[in-house]
């Protein structure tokens, strides 16, 4: 592609170069910090209840613990969310749905697994119908407990925010 600009002639793929330049800029310090700050405070989990930990998850979004103050707002559609919250046991049937939901979410996306069941099956470790979330999804933060208290949910969100703001989690590549 050839492009003329005030007497200079540019050769090459303009679109590709522009994308490269944008990636370079977004990964550069001041903008990167702003970007990570923005992502850290707009973690929107998708409405996807997988098991009984959902009761405590609902309590943590309610007035007393109010996780919305971290910019954490449970949202309806997977295509507008960037956080998948595995609330407890993932059965085989639900695991399939979890992968679908995860694949529909836009990048950058994160996964938090809640409860002992989210780590290793918890009390249902020898059940014939469960899968471990870490086997099928890239989990960033685990919350131990059965069920974890809402404070633990809040702490997991803060941990994820710190991880994001350190710049480890999000990479823009073109």
């Amino acid at each position: 592609m050839v492009c003329m600009m005030e007497g200079t002639m540019l050769l090459g793929n303009l679109e590709k170069s522009a994308r490269k330049a944008a990636a370079w800029l977004v990964n550069k310090t001041p903008i990167r910090n702003i970007r990570d700050w923005g992502i850290a405070f707009s973690l929107w989990p998708v409405h996807f209840t997988t098991a009984c930990c959902g009761a405590e998850f609902a309590a943590s979004a309610a007035p007393r613990f109010d996780t919305e103050r971290f910019g954490f707002l449970p949202f309806i559609a997977s295509r507008q969310c960037n956080l998948l919250f595995i609330e407890g046991t993932l059965t085989k049937k639900m695991g399939e749905a979890a992968i679908w939901v995860y694949e529909q979410m836009p990048e950058p996306k994160f996964v938090i697994a809640m409860g002992a069941c989210g780590i290793d099956g918890g009390i249902f470790w020898n059940s014939y119908n469960i899968v471990r979330p870490m086997d099928i999804l890239p989990v960033s933060v685990f919350i131990p407990g059965c069920p974890p208290r809402p404070e633990a949910v809040a702490q997991a969100i803060i941990m994820l925010q710190r991880k994001i703001r350190k710049g480890e989690m999000v990479k823009y590549e073109f």
Binding site: T89, K93, M94, I123, N126, N129
Partner: peptide
């Protein structure tokens, strides 16, 4: 059936007191 975790079956291999949390 999305949350079937086989509680009844697991009760057959857990001791009586361990079934309370289950």
């Amino acid at each position: 059936g999305y949350v079937h975790r086989s509680v009844e079956k697991l009760a057959e291999v857990k001791k009586y007191l361990h079934i309370i949390p289950l």
